[in-house]
């Protein structure tokens, strides 16, 4: 059968999709909550990255938005030199794609629910991820490579956050940074593209070069991959939380009490 024949025989007379599914309520709660949460994060992080280049450090702490620390003398925020990496990584992420296509673009808003008629960006009609801009999502792996580098810096910052005044130091800020970097690591290492790169692309592990270790790595990533959405949300929250905590501390909200033990 040719493609033309299949087109000709495609289901034609059928019930139109609708979002007034009988007996089904509450489907709009999830996409709308996601849209609200994303919007809040985007507003806050955009504001933080673009306009709040002061008060991003406190003692040994460094806001993750401003990592790696780039001593640069220019009028704009230094963070924008790096921030596009995590932004791009998340924007092309297979989980976030699901979330924003549903929440913002209503393509679809929820399963088996009708979609509002709306023009699709650049393409006119729905074209999935075949046309600009969504075809760019196929380059997710390149953002992964860069995100791994950024993750290295964040670990470096976190280790440094446990050193202060020439000695070991544990504070709420350093613990928050540690939690944050662990969640970010979970997020990065549960990535679908990474899963493909370490072993997913192999058809026959027992015949491939370095098949056994690759199978092992593939197994590890596959184990945490189902939690990718959880890591995505938790790390989103933790990044913002660390940034807010450091800013507040820097503004003196908690007094000047960098202590050497819990609770200061």
């Amino acid at each position: 059968m040719t493609v033309e024949e299949r087109v000709a025989e495609a289901p034609s007379v059928r019930q139109p999709p609708t979002n007034a599914m009988p007996g089904r309520g509450g489907w709009w709660i999830q996409p709308n909550s996601v849209a609200i949460a994303f919007t809040l994060f985007i507003l806050y992080s955009g504001w933080s990255v673009l306009f709040l280049s002061g008060h991003t450090t406190y003692g040994p702490y460094l806001s993750p938005f401003y990592s790696p620390h780039i001593p640069l003398n220019w009028p704009l925020s230094a963070a924008i030199l790096v921030a596009w990496v995590p932004l791009g990584f998340r924007a092309t992420c297979y989980y976030y794609r699901k979330a924003y296509y549903r929440a913002y673009f209503r393509d679809p808003p929820a399963c088996a629910i009708g979609e509002p008629q709306h023009p699709h960006l650049f393409a006119g009609s729905y074209s999935g991820e075949r046309k600009f801009p969504w075809v760019l999502n196929n380059f997710h792996r390149y953002f992964l490579y860069l995100a791994l580098i950024v993750l290295g810096f964040l670990w470096w910052d976190t280790i440094n956050a446990f050193h202060y005044g020439g000695t070991w130091y544990v504070g709420l800020g350093s613990l928050l940074m540690l939690a944050n970097v662990i969640l970010l690591t979970g997020y990065t290492f549960s990535c679908h593209a990474l899963r493909h790169l370490v072993g997913g692309s192999v058809d026959c592990f027992s015949c491939a070069f370095a098949g056994r270790p690759r199978h092992g790595m593939y197994g590890l990533v596959s184990k945490i991959n189902p939690y990718h959405p959880n890591f995505a949300w938790l790390s989103l929250a933790s990044v913002a939380a660390v940034d807010i905590y450091i800013r507040l501390a820097s503004y003196g909200a908690f007094g000047h009490c960098l202590g050497t033990h819990f609770g200061c």
Binding site: K98, S127, G128, R130, W134
Partner: peptide, 24 residues
């Protein structure tokens, strides 16, 4: 097969009675 049409919104995975992780 037009795999590019899929925008991985995971509804297939949500409705699968065999719990196949179709999207992932």
């Amino acid at each position: 097969a037009g795999i590019g049409y899929c925008n991985i919104t995971k509804c297939c995975q949500e409705v699968c009675p065999e719990h196949i992780h179709i999207t992932d």
